[in-house]
Design a protein around this nucleic acid. Structure first.
Lengths: 161, 161
DNA sequence: GCTTGACCTTACCATTATGGGAAGCACCAT
DNA sequence: ATGGTGCTTCCCATAATGGTAAGGTCAAGC
């Protein structure tokens, strides 16, 4: 299989396959006499593994560790689970941060008339002399994961499109 | 105010202040004879505005547009609101993506024994020969913003910390 | 055999936002 | 004047990916 076919088969672009090789994430494949890379089914499988890990939000370095775990047939499933759970917590931390931003902005937008007058609480907030974020209702713990569906402020956003 | 004091006062590092100047996000301040940058209260205010925008997840380019809106005293609040809402949708799209990842991984981890045996459904999933993500319950539309609180799968994660 | 187009090769540049460091000059207190 | 701290510019690095350019290769058709 040429690199183009490997790309199609794995969902990883040819560009990225070469990159993964350059950083040692995958082994250099054999080459034809002309220098073309040739991939085995095994290697395609590995690329698909990486692709899936990336899709699940693992970094390349994390994908590298997952590959190592995968290859190590004697690993303990606990190791894998611990690793995955660490990532889940990272994801949820990020989600919480984004939700905090979104929530704040939605609140601000909610109080903005959104007409042709210039007064705008959104800009007013950004321009606050102190760096204080409006306290608002900080009912969220430090990282309660998905337990806080802040789906409470009704559809203030019929202006969606 | 020197750049160091401006950094402390605005929450933007000196490094970033110089960078913002280099990309034209802020105007070059006046300089002392020795070449030191000197910032006015006005400029500090602007830096804080930028800082706040960044904290709310706006990119630097978006911060640039917000600054323009802020400076334009005759802008319509509708313009600001539209802009903010666009960002909220971006945030929520990102949140949805992260939640999909987190959900999938949580489900996989849930079925992983997590003991010293090697069998692990997490790695098994990553290594699936086809690129098929486990269909699971795909009850989520394309981008229903915050309307789909997928807060339904119970606390499968009491193992959180 | 030769042309053509699709595909491969490497190498370099760009992106986004930020941090780090070096070399050199300025300022201030002792 | 000496030292420490702070400022200046310039260069490099990060993470993951895309783009482009210049050139070699392969296969199909004439």
């Amino acid at each position: 299989m040429n690199i183009g076919q490997a790309a199609t088969a794995s969902g990883v672009t040819a560009k990225m396959i070469r990159y993964y090789e350059s950083i040692g994430l995958i082994e250099p494949p054999i080459r034809t006499q002309a220098g073309y890379r040739v991939y085995t089914a095994e290697e395609i499988h590995e690329l698909r593994f990486i692709k899936r890990a990336r899709t699940l939000g693992f970094s390349i370095e994390e994908a590298r560790e997952l590959l190592a775990l995968w290859r190590d047939k004697s690993r303990a499933s606990a190791d894998v689970k611990t690793f995955a759970m660490k990532h889940v917590r990272d994801l949820e931390t990020k989600i919480d941060e984004l939700q905090a931003m979104s929530r704040t902005l939605r609140h601000l937008a909610q109080t903005c008339h959104g007409d042709d007058r210039p007064e705008c609480p959104i800009l007013a907030d950004l321009a606050l002399p102190d760096a204080r974020q409006p306290p608002a209702e900080k009912k969220r713990g430090k990282a309660k994961t998905h337990a806080d569906c802040t789906c409470d402020e009704g559809d203030t956003f019929s202006s969606r499109h």
